[in-house]
């Protein structure tokens, strides 16, 4: 474990908690893409199948359970408890256009052709594009609540910090996972546009609104 990976995990945890609290406190999921949240729940489910069979550390197990629990709780709040506030008209990104190609790629490009490893690879590829429905929704509505932009910033920073973690592990642990690195680069690049808006607008106290 290094400081960059820990910072990344804490940033990821913060994002997940901020989103869950936002929906719970405001009793509304307006502006939140339910499709992205379903994709994240799928990412954690396919990545953490070895939760009970492959013990890494108490930290690893606890964090995986928190991620899984929060992901499903968020999906539940969006599609059941606060369904009336779900903005389905703007959450129209065709998620199947992500899941199918990612599924095919996971079969073709992986470290080992075994069920667990293919599902892990699927989760890595899917995570890199899972935020697209959310970013697409914001571009359609033309704006985002400030709390939602903080959620997205923390979520985007988590994988950016992981990129630094992989550089660190390459030099100090001789660890190198090309699949995770390439997917992590794609994932972080998708946030660049948002990062620019977040830093130039939200951090200046303005509301994030896109030129519609």
């Amino acid at each position: 474990m290094n400081i960059f990976r820990l910072a990344g995990d804490l940033s990821h945890l913060a994002a997940i908690i901020v989103l869950l609290l936002k929906i719970w406190k405001t009793r509304s999921c307006a502006g939140i893409s339910g499709k992205s949240q379903i994709l994240f729940a799928l990412v954690f489910t396919t990545r953490y199948l070895d939760l009970f069979t492959n013990f890494i550390s108490p930290y690893n197990t606890v964090m995986k359970m928190i991620y899984l629990g929060c992901a499903y709780a968020t999906v539940y709040l969006i599609y059941m408890k606060f369904k009336a506030t779900y903005d389905g008209n703007h959450d129209t990104f065709r998620a199947e256009f992500l899941v199918v190609p990612v599924g095919g790629l996971a079969f073709l490009v992986n470290h080992e052709f075994s069920p667990l490893e293919i599902l892990w690879t699927f989760s890595i590829y899917l995570e890199s594009v899972a935020i697209l429905p959310q970013l697409f929704m914001i571009s359609k509505t033309g704006e985002a609540e400030t709390i939602t932009t903080h959620y997205l910033f923390a979520l985007g920073m988590y994988r950016a910090l992981y990129l630094i973690n992989w550089i660190w592990r390459y030099y100090f642990e001789n660890f190198f996972d090309l699949i995770a690195i390439v997917a992590g680069c794609v994932q972080t690049i998708l946030y660049c546009d948002f990062f620019y808006l977040y830093i130039t607008k939200v951090l200046q106290g303005k509301k994030l609104s896109l030129p519609a």
């Binding site: 990976r5 995990d9 690893n60 964090m63 490893e117 892990w120 660890f175 995770a180």
Partner: peptide
């Protein structure tokens, strides 16, 4: 190589 498949990251 085994390290690689023993994914220790979240």
């Amino acid at each position: 190589r085994q390290l690689m498949l023993n994914h220790d990251e979240l």
